[in-house]
Every structure is written in structure tokens, then in C-alpha cells.
Write a protein that binds this DNA or RNA. Structure first.
Lengths: 152, 152
DNA sequence: ATTGACGTTGACGTTAACGTCAATATAATA
DNA sequence: TATTATATTGACGTTAACGTCAACGTCAAT
């Protein structure tokens, strides 16, 4: 019985992570991640407290796997797209729950996807419209500048 | 000396508004606007307290002109695009200040526009990427559903 | 005369997403 | 051994964007 999460695109989640130290997978400290993504360690810990990350521990210290790295990337992209951390958490749950293979879950996933797509398409329209308007405004600014120069 | 704000696209601001009652321009009450844009009157008053709107008064009551109507539409679009109310206010100020005809202001406007365009283009990329990923995920969900059905 | 719809101005409450300490532990380095 | 760099867990503070009262005015309809 193949697991849906296993066929997900590389850019999405990889579940069934092995122990980071036993396998040859790269790991990260919290400050490494903070530096790479240009955020604070406080933010990273906060995401964990909200259930968006769950790194291993090496003693007291957090040890982040590739999966955590990917998740963090997704969190930040989600934020750029205007999603709240709760919504991002929902999406994670959906991906995870789809791996149980339950049919009812699958159709709920599809619903959520459709919902997101609608929002994204709306935003896309908004952005394209705004880009057009900004370009038009810019054009008129430049034209005005030329007029001012030709009038000495 | 033509005013830049006068050559702005219809979808942007119209300044130099006349008295709403003397001219034949349509006006709105606060609850009319609230209903049309599906927001609360509280929100509209809040936008005013933040300097984003400045409707006339008919006695104590607020009287909104076409210009206010347009501004409100822009506020909401800005919010959908992820801008804060402060940022939206900045944009309004830029449009307004450009009408003074000062050259220095104009180039600052152009800078700001470029800044916004970069952000918007980044968001556009993010959204298009996410739409692709969502479609791919959806495709695999549907494929999985077909498998489950063919296996009885 | 009172009810209801609509408006007003405070003023305090709320949520999200962290920031900003403080106090402490550990490991490597000077 | 002292310093430095890095980590930890609280716990309280902060900002944005309103929500949610409260207390009141005004006008039309019953």
C-alpha cells in the first residue's frame, strides 16, 4: 500500500525521516538555520511551540534534519503568501493526514486545495492589476520628468 | 502647470474633489460603504483615524464621496496584497505629494514604485510556484482515488 | 411617546507573531 | 581559569487591526 506522502514533489514534505545521525543526512543547529533564512532563533523556537517543527534533541539542544529544513522553507514561503501560522499548520496536517490513505481525508484535502487555489488566483489577479497600475503610473511620472526638462 | 494627479488612471485617486452636495457626485453613508465592501463600520472609522480616509461631515455624520469610495477600494486591495495600513498610507501620501510637482518627490515616488514592484514580482513568483505545486498535489490525489476505486 | 434604525465618540479587549529580557547550562578557546 | 559563543527555558512586552461594549444623539414610523 503506497504512501501518498512518498509520491509528493521533492519541494514538499518528506515523511518517515530516519535518525539524522545514523543516516548520512545533513543536520543543522538552530543558529545555522537562523542565519541561512535570515530569521531569529526565537522565531524558530516559536514555530516549534506552535507545532510547525519538531526537531530531534542532542541532549538539550535541538538538532534539525533535512525535513525540518524543508518545513522551515515552506513556513516562510507560506508567510510570504500571507498565510497565518495556523493555516500553515493546517496545510501540514493535511499533507500528513493524507498519508493514512483514508478516502474521506483525501476529499477534504482536495477541498482545501481548491480553497487555497481560489485565494491564490484572486491574489494573482490583484497583483497583476497592481503591477499594471504601477507601470502606468511610472510611465506618467517619466513623461512628466521629460516635460520638465524640455521646459528648461 | 498640469497636475500629475489629474492624469492618473481612473482606478487611482481623484484629487481636487468638489463639495459632494453642490456637484452632482454620488455620495455614500458609512453603512452603505460597509455593506458594499462587506466590512464593519468600525473598520471604516478606524481607517479614518489612521488617516486613510477623510470624509466630509453633514452635521455630525460622515458623508463619503466618490474619492473616498475609490480610496476604500484601494485600501482593501492593498490589504489583500499583504500591505499594512501604514504602507497603504505611505502610498497615498506618495500619490498626493507627487501633485506638488516637485522633482525630488518624483524620483522618490519612482523609487517606491520600484520597491513595490520588486515585492509584487516576488509574490507573483511565490504564488505561481505554489499554484503549480498545489496542482501537482491535486493530480496525485486524484490518481490515488482512481487506484482505490479500481481496486474495489 | 416610544420603538427602531442609524449615527456618534470613547475606551478597553483581543489575537498573532514574535521581541526582549533574565537566569542558566555547556563546550571550546585564550 | 576566565572568557566567549552557543545553547536552553520561562515570562513579560509589543504592535497591528480591528472587535466589543457603553453611553448617547437624531430622525421617521407606529
Amino acid at each position: 500500500m503506497p504512501d501518498i506522502s512518498q509520491v509528493l514533489s521533492d519541494t514538499f514534505l518528506r515523511t518517515n525521516a530516519l535518525d539524522p545521525r545514523e543516516s548520512g543526512n545533513k543536520t543543522y543547529s538552530i543558529s545555522q538555520l537562523a542565519k541561512e533564512f535570515d530569521i531569529t532563533t526565537r522565531a524558530i523556537r516559536f514555530y516549534e511551540s506552535e507545532g510547525l517543527l519538531s526537531p530531534e534533541r542532542e541532549g538539550r539542544n535541538r538538532l534539525y534534519s533535512q525535513r525540518d529544513h524543508t518545513r522551515l522553507k515552506l513556513i516562510l514561503r507560506g508567510k510570504r503568501l500571507g498565510f497565518s501560522l495556523d493555516e500553515i499548520g493546517e496545510l501540514f496536517e493535511l499533507y500528513d493526514s493524507s498519508s493514512t490513505g483514508e478516502l474521506a481525508q483525501l476529499s477534504r484535502v482536495l477541498e482545501k486545495i481548491e480553497e487555497r487555489k481560489q485565494i491564490l488566483k484572486q491574489q494573482l489577479e490583484d497583483i497583476q492589476l497592481s503591477l499594471h497600475e504601477l507601470k502606468e503610473f511610472e510611465r506618467q511620472c517619466r513623461q512628466r520628468l521629460r516635460q520638465m526638462r524640455s521646459n528648461h
